[in-house]
Design a protein around this nucleic acid. Structure first.
Lengths: 118, 118
DNA sequence: AGCTTTCATCGTCTATCGCCGATAAACGAT
DNA sequence: ATCGTTTATCGGCGATAGACGATGAAAGCT
């Protein structure tokens, strides 16, 4: 997105926004929220199990799991012919903390690294 | 999305997921995060001000503001020829609470309204 | 009255998302 | 060695998101 174009009074801040947005984007889908819910209720389960609980094709579920995986919100452990997925509880807490920090700061009017011109 | 198709062991829960996803989707964009940051730092400011801080066209910023508005994260007060936007601090805190509750529950393994089979 | 400023909306374009079926790869079992 | 099971990935399709410029409406200014 034209990164080196104009340092529009935002350079380091922009990266933080993009990181946060990336994490949120992984979460911002009803199916992925459902999947996280399912995964959190069990120790670990394979893709097939998740497919059994959702009205979606296996390939679709696999892709959603991949998104969650790449966002670092779940972990996978290949066990035999199946892949055991589990929520990364630390990552969830970290994301929760990041979202909380951002939203609370915004709500408090303490915009990070700002407050210069009106 | 084929709502009345098969009550796949999720009916009320699905709505909650969709609501949460909707709120998160509004937040899951770097530009909108930046806008929220800007708005939180000032009491209220108009679209033009936001445009001045971002390398984007006025129409684009206006649309992002509309998304935030429809998600209830910001409020607008038309004042003369300009629109004064301000963060809805209560809404931000509410969303923060919802995200926090969901992620914390997931991290704690307490998936809401689940825990049956497997 | 004109002119400027500010904003919202429309239409368009491109890129990405979300879904699917089909297929291949990896593994276990017979 | 040959199945059956599970998973990941590919290609395609429709829908949506995100960006832009252009336009029009509303409000202020001279």
């Amino acid at each position: 997105m034209k990164a080196s174009h104009e340092p529009h009074a935002s350079e380091t801040r922009c990266c933080a926004s993009k990181d946060l947005a990336r994490g949120l984007a992984a979460l911002a889908h009803p199916v992925r929220i459902e999947i996280l819910r399912h995964l959190s209720g069990v120790d670990a389960c394979c893709c097939k199990d998740v497919v059994g609980k959702l009205p979606l094709a296996q390939s679709t579920v696999s892709q959603h799991l991949k998104v969650l995986l790449e966002a670092g919100l779940v972990r996978v452990r290949p066990e035999g012919q199946r892949s055991n997925y589990a929520v990364d509880r630390e990552a969830l807490l970290a994301l929760s903390g990041a979202v909380n920090a951002f939203l609370s700061d915004c709500a408090a009017g303490a915009a990070p690294a700002q407050k210069e011109k009106i």
